[in-house]
């Protein structure tokens, strides 16, 4: 993957797209092959190490923390918070409150970018589907990532809002971020992604611009079923 791109990862259901995400983010250990990120071997790393390195993922079904507020969810993803250490939490509140104030500033910026400012104090479980998707992206942004894996960022979201989410992603790419996006909404893929990687039956089928891959007969076969 090229830095600064929005790479699409498409393929029919069961092609293994989410499995790729799980391997990349360390949720499932890879059985074979190697994962290199930013010049570092991360094949056997644990999820939190990978996230701290700058590769952050979102989940397909907005998997959040229902009993945390939106602000808390964002703050949770901020790095270098000394108050997460039990001793500092008990005995040096001044130190973690200072860092907390910085993280709150950043959380407010992220929320403003994603139009979530007015729901910062709501419980995450009370958000609408689209807001949950935006919060997923917000969570990823809090960790100051280099590469964000987006798992179906617009699934189940109305067309107006999905267009808006796509715009936000494009704007974030301009700030130097790299994205790998799994998405079934081809309109969004066509608008956002270049290059596009096509997977089928657990393996990579082809790669190219959106126009190239959709005109590839093998891709059409994979989606529509094998011709006899």
């Amino acid at each position: 993957m090229q830095a600064g791109t929005i790479t699409g990862l498409i393929g029919p259901n069961g092609a293994g797209k989410t499995t790729v995400f799980n391997c990349l983010s360390g949720v499932i250990p890879a059985e074979a092959g190697q994962i290199t990120f930013d010049g570092t071997q991360i094949t056997t790393w644990r999820p939190e190490q990978i996230s701290q390195r700058g590769l952050v993922r979102t989940f397909q079904i907005a998997r959040g923390f229902p009993r945390l507020t939106v602000l808390e969810t964002l703050l949770l993803h901020g790095e270098a918070q000394p108050g997460e250490d039990v001793v500092a939490a008990l005995f040096s509140p001044g130190r973690w409150r200072k860092r907390e104030a910085e993280l709150i500033t950043r959380a407010e910026e992220v929320a403003a970018q994603l139009n979530l400012t007015h729901v910062l104090d709501n419980m995450s479980s009370d958000l609408s589907g689209g807001q949950k998707k935006l919060l997923e992206i917000g969570r990823a942004l809090m960790g100051r990532p280099k590469l964000i894996l987006l798992d179906e960022p617009v699934a189940g979201v109305n067309p107006t809002l999905s267009g808006e989410i796509a715009e936000r992603i494009a704007a974030l790419r301009e700030t130097g971020l790299t994205f790998l996006v799994v998405e079934h909404d081809m309109e969004i893929v066509a608008r956002l992604c270049d290059p596009v990687i096509v997977m089928a039956a657990g393996a990579k089928l082809t790669e190219g611009s959106f126009e190239e891959v959709v005109s590839d007969p093998r891709v059409q076969d994979a989606y529509l079923g094998q011709r006899a």
Binding site: V27, P47, E48, F59, G64, T73, G143
Partner: peptide, 15 residues
């Protein structure tokens, strides 16, 4: 509390 709600998501959050 994040771990209580979802362990995997908490790990991905770097915890």
């Amino acid at each position: 509390r994040a771990i209580r709600d979802d362990e995997t998501a908490a790990a991905v959050a770097g915890k």
